[in-house]
């Protein structure tokens, strides 16, 4: 019993020591939520990174997490919807998985409550990697829990911050050009973007129906069964947004400018439409300023420990 206690204390100390070494980029919260049952350790993060790039986790060994979540593309890809093994198409855009350690729910419809729950689902999804968890464990020689914990740990370390936007907020007025400063004022003011895109990750982690994809995809309704959630999707964070087209949960809008136009016109009203989305009546100059500001959200992207 005493030995177990010593081991636990030692493990905890090691975990804390490692956790301290995770470099949090400027502008993000130093407090990165980590579940008690899966403390962040260098070993797990390194294992998770290997698994992230490991094609053995897909049935035909052609697809890894990184096939769609490409590090050089801010951990997404350029296709409108995800493509899994044998060219099987998903129905939603591959999300940028940056700063997801701060997330409160996962996937566009929020069907996973934790990163630990989330990371196993693409492995099992027939349209993505199509492998059972016992098969994944057997192929990697790891327990399912080890795969789960290490992948989640690695994803937690994928962080983007230290952008011109962060530096501006923290007191460097020259970090944003005048047009970008106007864009920021519009973002938090007239354009109403900050009604949903708030905080360091520029997401409220809530679900909104903007009319995109209506009525083909039930969105959050499939999880909750609540009619007001029909067609609602989680607000995506906007870190690295300017370099990761196409946009929206179905990848249906090609450019940032078109996204701004979509919201300027008030979205696509429907019976479950979110009242937060309203016609904006932006001028051409204001739209350009918003787009310029969104480009200031490209920052320093890092992963691992």
């Amino acid at each position: 019993m005493k030995f177990r206690l010593v081991v636990m204390v030692t493990a905890l100390a090691a975990a804390l020591a490692s956790a301290e070494k995770l470099a949090i980029p400027v502008g993000l919260d130093a407090y990165l939520p980590v579940p008690d049952h899966n403390p962040l350790t260098r070993e797990k993060v390194e294992l998770g990174k290997k698994l992230f790039f490991d094609t053995r986790l897909s049935r035909d060994q052609t697809v890894s997490c990184a096939t769609c979540h490409i590090p050089e593309s801010a951990f997404t890809d350029e296709r409108p919807v995800g493509v899994g093994i044998a060219g099987r198409k998903g129905r939603r855009r591959v999300p940028r998985i940056v700063n997801r350690g701060y997330g409160k729910s996962f996937f566009w419809d929020g069907r996973a409550a934790t990163l630990e729950e989330q990371v196993l689902k693409p492995i099992q999804d027939p349209n993505e990697m199509d492998l059972t968890l016992p098969e994944a464990a057997a192929r990697t020689g790891l327990s399912v829990e080890a795969v789960q914990q290490s992948l989640a740990s690695y994803v937690r370390t994928i962080l983007s911050g230290d952008s011109p936007y962060d530096r501006y907020l923290l007191g460097d007025p020259a970090a944003l050009a005048p047009q970008q400063r106007l864009g920021l004022r519009l973002f938090t003011g007239k354009a109403g973007c900050a009604s949903c895109h708030i905080g360091p990750n520029l997401t409220d982690e809530r679900f909104h129906n903007t009319g995109i994809g209506w009525p083909n995809d039930p969105g959050r309704f499939a999880v909750t069964g609540r009619e007001p959630d029909r067609g609602a999707f989680k607000t995506p964070g906007l870190r690295e947004v300017a370099r990761t087209p196409p946009y929206m949960h179905d990848g249906s809008i090609r450019t940032l400018e078109e996204v701004i136009d979509f919201y300027d016109k008030g979205g696509k009203p429907n019976p479950a439409f979110d009242p937060e989305v309203r016609e904006l009546r932006l001028t051409a100059g204001e739209k350009a300023a918003l787009a310029a500001f969104l480009k200031a959200l490209n920052g320093t992207l890092r992963d691992g420990m």
Partner: peptide, 11 residues
């Protein structure tokens, strides 16, 4: 010098 952000709280 720049502030260090420890924790953000929504609304």
């Amino acid at each position: 010098g720049p502030p260090k952000v420890l924790r953000s709280l929504h609304w």
